[in-house]
């Protein structure tokens, strides 16, 4: 299962740096990114998406998955630079970069089995965006199977 997921990742969108150790990614180190992104959701580690994705996300903050998450231009620019500099090295095949981590092939294949579905219901997890609901070390970059 894990192996299949790895192949998927390698073939499609590869957070390569994320896969150095398959269950962990380098944590967010920029305080501004932690503070601003982390005000509404876990500050997702930059390695989860390629730079093109982060640029698109930071350019469309006024409609950020259904909410206005706009920032002043200076803050926006600083966060974008950090995310792009630490982005995953994968290339999206499509012309438009992927915007939702939860739609990436490796993500859906890692989260589709029985156990995950059961846990999700049982713990009353509202959204797949809330990594820490199941992965308690998510904020620190650890996504081992809790």
């Amino acid at each position: 299962m894990r192996f299949t997921a790895l192949i998927f990742s390698a073939a499609l969108l590869v957070p390569l740096s994320a896969m150095a150790d398959e269950d962990s990614v380098p944590p967010v180190t920029d305080p501004l990114t932690k503070k601003e992104c982390g005000a509404c959701h876990m500050a997702y580690q930059p390695a989860f998406l390629p730079a093109a994705s982060w640029r698109e996300i930071m350019a469309t903050l006024d409609d950020h998955f259904g909410e206005d998450a706009s920032l002043d231009p200076e803050t926006r620019g600083q966060i974008e630079s950090y995310l792009a500099a630490n982005a995953g090295r994968g290339r999206a095949r499509r012309a438009s970069p992927p915007l939702r981590i939860t739609n990436l092939k490796w993500f859906t294949s890692e989260h589709r089995d029985h156990e995950v579905t059961w846990l999700w219901k049982n713990r009353n997890v509202k959204t797949m965006a809330d990594c820490a609901a199941c992965h308690r070390g998510a904020g620190r970059g650890y996504f081992e199977d809790d």
């Binding site: 509404c40 959701h41 259904g66 909410e67 509202k126 959204t127 965006a129 820490a132």
Partner: peptide, 26 residues
């Protein structure tokens, strides 16, 4: 407004004294 957030109380709960929750679970 945006369809997911028609009122302040959607995220902040109807009680100003209570902790609310963002749509992403924070």
């Amino acid at each position: 407004g945006k369809p997911d957030t028609p009122a302040c109380t959607v995220c902040h709960t109807p009680s100003p004294l209570k902790q609310g929750e963002t749509r992403a679970g924070k």
